[in-house]
């Protein structure tokens, strides 16, 4: 069992290493820009999908990790869970912003405008605001355990919006296309483009794992430093 857990830990460390994420991203950029053909209808602008979709996926994943970290903290009040939850929320916010930005650029090229009050866009913007609020709440509370407890609650309640974002394109009509990959039945995307998309999702996920690991390590060091610092008289 020890051998297996050591192996799992080693795989985890390699997967969350910066060099692996860097190589995977480089490969994704190459595949996305020159390895696969341009979309027949949209042309080269469709290649932004290899940034947009992974960013949106990582927003979901990161906020899910925040939810799990919050639940674990409330169950067993260990600050390590809180550090993971907070780091994931921060990274999730960054990727939500990137999804909105890349979507706006894609929208300008295909819809002719940067922004539309489409349900998917609007709910994603709301998701961004909820987790911006999460970080603001954390910034406004000094006590570590209280901060962890309150942000765990908000991380759980805030996650209610994630399924709403995902299913908004099914529940309400708008400009944004319905789901093409995570949907009942076969994906409605060319298989070559789908393979490139899945590769970019995988490499972005590695980037997320590396960022999460580094951010959590920084917070751990900061907490240790805070504990060892004597108050200035």
């Amino acid at each position: 069992m020890t051998g297996l857990s050591d192996l799992a830990r080693t795989i985890g460390r390699v997967a969350a290493s910066g060099s692996v994420a860097g190589v995977a991203l480089l490969a994704t950029v190459t595949i996305g820009l020159v390895g696969v053909p341009a979309d027949a209808a949209q042309g080269d602008v469709q290649r932004i999908m290899y940034v947009h979709v992974p960013s949106a996926w990582l927003a979901y994943l990161a906020f899910f990790v925040t939810l799990v970290g919050g639940v674990l903290y409330l169950w067993r009040p260990n600050l390590a869970y809180d550090r993971v939850a907070a780091a994931s929320a921060e990274i999730g916010l960054m990727f939500t912003g990137l999804a909105i930005l890349s979507g706006a650029i894609w929208g300008k090229a295909t819809w002719g405008k940067w922004w539309d009050w489409d349900p998917r866009l609007t709910t994603t913007a709301i998701l961004f605001l909820i987790y911006a609020g999460y970080l603001l709440l954390r910034a406004s509370i000094v006590d570590r355990h209280r901060r962890a407890r309150l942000s765990a609650v908000l991380g759980i309640v805030g996650f209610v919006n994630v399924p709403i974002v995902h299913f908004s394109v099914v529940w309400w009509r708008g400009l944004h296309q319905p789901p093409t990959v995570i949907r009942p039945g076969d994906p409605t995307i060319d298989h070559l483009l789908l393979a490139a998309l899945l590769a970019s999702v995988a490499s972005f996920t590695l980037l997320y794992a590396w960022l999460l690991r580094r951010r959590t390590e920084i917070d751990t060091l900061r907490d240790r430093a805070d504990l060892t610092l004597e108050p200035i008289p």
């Binding site: 709910t123 709301i126 605001l129 909820i130 911006a132 603001l136 209610v160 919006n161």
Partner: peptide, 9 residues
């Protein structure tokens, strides 16, 4: 800041 986005649904 916390309440209004949560009330959007």
């Amino acid at each position: 800041v916390l309440l209004l986005p949560l009330l959007v649904p």
